[in-house]
């Protein structure tokens, strides 16, 4: 399956970014073959609605699942509508995207069954 991981850099060894809408980029990994690509997050500089934009972006990339640190209500709704599975990982462990991939494969990541926090301001 195609798994998106929010990251701060340009490679699979880049640090995991626990922010979803404001992540620097997304690493898209094929969990079967291990091949990966990195895509800059177009929502990084959005004045508002970053979660919605990022969710649409990874849906367009064809991701079937996402790992990030938190999902706001609009990001959650958009990801759910796109049938993208949502997984959670802590951003405090100094992990790379490769570490997150390993944790995902071993089934150690919790799923987000609802938004993890209230929305930011609506402006």
């Amino acid at each position: 399956m195609k798994l998106a991981i929010s990251i701060t850099g340009q490679t699979l060894d880049s640090p995991f970014d626990a922010r979803f809408g404001r992540a620097a980029s997304f690493c898209l990994v094929d969990t079967d073959t291990g091949s990966w690509t990195v895509h800059a997050n177009p929502a990084l500089s959005a004045s508002g609605g970053a979660g919605v934009q990022a969710a649409q972006f990874i849906a367009q990339l064809g991701a079937q699942a996402i790992v990030s640190g938190a999902y706001g209500p609009k990001a959650y709704t958009t990801l759910a509508a796109a049938n993208i599975q949502r997984f959670l990982a802590s951003g405090h462990d100094g992990r790379t995207a490769a570490d997150i991939l390993t944790a995902f494969k071993s089934g150690h990541l919790a799923t987000a069954d609802d938004a993890t926090h209230g929305g930011h301001h609506g402006g």
Binding site: A43, A46, G48, G49, A50, V52, Q53, A55, Q56, A59, T77, T78, A81, A82, N83
Partner: peptide, 11 residues
Amino acid sequence: HAIAVVGQTVL
């Protein structure tokens, strides 16, 4: 980003 189209759904 007040309107999103994902698959066959418009939000």
